[in-house]
Amino acid sequence: MFEAVAFYLFAFLTIAMFYITVTTSQALYALTALAAGMIFISAFFFILGADFLGAIQIVVYSGAVMALYSFGMMFFDTTREVKERQGNSAVVLGLSIISAILVVVIFATPIISDNITALYPVTEGAGNTQEVGMVLFTKYLVPFELAAVMLLVAMVAGIVLAGKKMDLSLTLMKEHEIRMMREEDKNKKVLS
């Protein structure tokens, strides 16, 4: 009973939030709606008994990813309205319905054939975090390490790409120094 009520409530909330994210023309509304949707999705993980996954969802998505997006949005002009692509909306709608049906078929095919057996069954008397640890550090150890290296590479790439000229601070520089820097930039653009 409670499970059903929680499921329908959070399903409605998640769909509403993501619909706002997709349709709004304000970038800040989209960002906040996306963050709320992520939190509501973690509720599904808690209902399903995947406590560790739910905690990770909150920490990574509404913590790290949202902070990254909001820092990134400081670089962009977010106050102006987002322009939409002028396209045939019927084609877009039809295409997305077709692809959604395809996805359902892809996901449902292995379920309909009843050959699935649990490879890593849930251990009795252990919490979800403990079970995740046991499977993650035995069978999935190599992908885990690879994911760690991939995150390191992504961090280095992010710093290198976004961190150019970040050692200069416009507030600490004198007026003529800033003007000289601007002119140098302009000359570089003309040359390139």
């Binding site: 790290a64 990813v65 990254l68 992504a154 790409l161 976004a162």
Partner: peptide, 10 residues
């Protein structure tokens, strides 16, 4: 998803 966001935003 996290690493995609980092590189993509950069």
């Amino acid at each position: 998803a996290a690493s995609e966001v980092a590189v993509g935003l950069g």
